[in-house]
Design a protein around this nucleic acid. Structure first.
Lengths: 231, 231
DNA sequence: TAGATTGTTAATCGATTAACAATC
DNA sequence: TAGATTGTTAATCGATTAACAATC
């Protein structure tokens, strides 16, 4: 229970970085529309956060704006990219070519955002050795060599829950620096390896929860009136 | 800026419900292993949250435990299921059969968790009318009819960002009650429609951010020693 | 009974919002 | 200059943790 990591986390709230990505998205859109400046007010308004929040979030990383004028979009975009580590391309491996893996493999969204898929891995001997989308599928045992050869930095983990921890450990041993996990398990990883997890079923369950709940609320409200004017 | 919704949100912290899903997962695993009781201590330990957090989260929804004894797994599982609205099956439509949609279509995870895919939609005339996995693909224009006929309650939205808002509005008009959105846009939906959003690229960007950051940290630390013993 | 563990209230912590001096 | 908007400090809000009486 000792709070040893006091110094490593408190500067930047975890959610601030995630909002930064959203700001970036929107700024790119504004730029595409030919806009050249914006303000915390405008940016926040578009994304449903307060102007203060926008300024605070940016403030964690530097001073990017001009009092009285706002933010210059052509400057702010690369500034945020730099902060997010997106001024460069990241080499990514996909591990697990099942249903989900196959989809992610063909998903164009990652490439569009500065990620390059450079290696494929799978456990099944029926798949290992095959070539998919121009890439050879390697056995996970080959991770160390392939990671080295291809300069893989991040791994997308789309293997069954039962295999996830073992595969993750192997990837860590192979020198991977971040894991994007789709398996519904809590991986235990060394501190120096970054970790983002998405549980697709869990999120859908959350939606079911919200729907059930919203019902109860509405049932409650309907004692007054039906379908009030939403904001 | 008027806080009108004071009464609608404060009782249950948004994250508590999401932890509930994780508790449920772990409890199911414990049950499969033949365990019959657990404690907030044990449950929290396994998932990386404090015992107090576990008790608090459950406390939002009722009293499920027995002082001195802990929780009875065969009771707690259905209790949480009920809270989450997972004591029943949900009928789901998949909208958008592109790369991602195709994957989600074949993804077995949802079925395993009480969701049933009952309808497919797409905008492309090349796909509409085809049968995939035993389901006919409908045009989005048919949403109202199909939603009614098949009893669709939730929709998985896997369409391009540019189409997302329009399709979402159509689904809402068709009577859908919740949207699980994979398009990287902020949908604006009426209050009575629940909404969960996942942005796959954004999350990967977060991973890149974490890796970049962790580097800076390590670089900092390495002025003292290389690769200290992590907790 | 003694030991264990809950449910819940109070204390702490962190993140969001408001406010405002600095400044373009 | 006057008006606008930043960066940042202080105030508020909400969520997490600690503590402990109730109770099995």
């Amino acid at each position: 229970m000792t709070r040893r990591d006091k110094g490593s986390s408190p500067l930047v709230p975890r959610v601030a970085a995630s909002r930064l990505s959203r700001y970036l998205r929107h700024l790119e859109e504004l730029e595409a529309r030919g806009e050249s400046t914006t303000s915390s007010q405008q940016l926040g308004g578009a994304l449903g956060v307060t102007a203060a929040q926008v300024r605070k979030d940016l403030g964690y990383f530097g001073q990017f704006g001009f009092p009285g004028l706002g933010y210059k979009i052509p400057n702010l975009i690369p500034d945020i990219r730099r902060v997010l580590g997106m001024e460069r391309t990241w080499n990514v491996a996909l591990v697990g070519i099942g249903n989900l893996g196959n989809a992610l493999l063909r998903y164009k969204g990652f490439q569009a955002h500065g990620f390059r898929l450079v290696a494929l891995f799978d456990a099944s001997p029926r798949i290992v050795g095959r070539t998919i989308e121009g890439m050879k599928v390697h056995a996970v045992e080959q991770a160390a060599r392939v990671v080295e050869e291809k300069g893989v930095e991040l791994a997308i983990l789309a293997v069954p829950a039962s295999a996830a921890q073992e595969v993750a450990s192997r990837l860590v041993a192979a020198g991977i620096r971040g894991i994007y996990n789709f398996a519904p398990v809590n991986l235990s990883l060394p501190e120096h390896v970054a970790y983002v997890s998405i549980d697709l079923s869990l999120e859908l369950e959350q939606l079911a929860f919200l729907v059930s709940h919203r019902n109860r609320e509405l049932a409650h409200r309907s004692s007054q009136e039906t379908a009030g004017s939403g904001p």
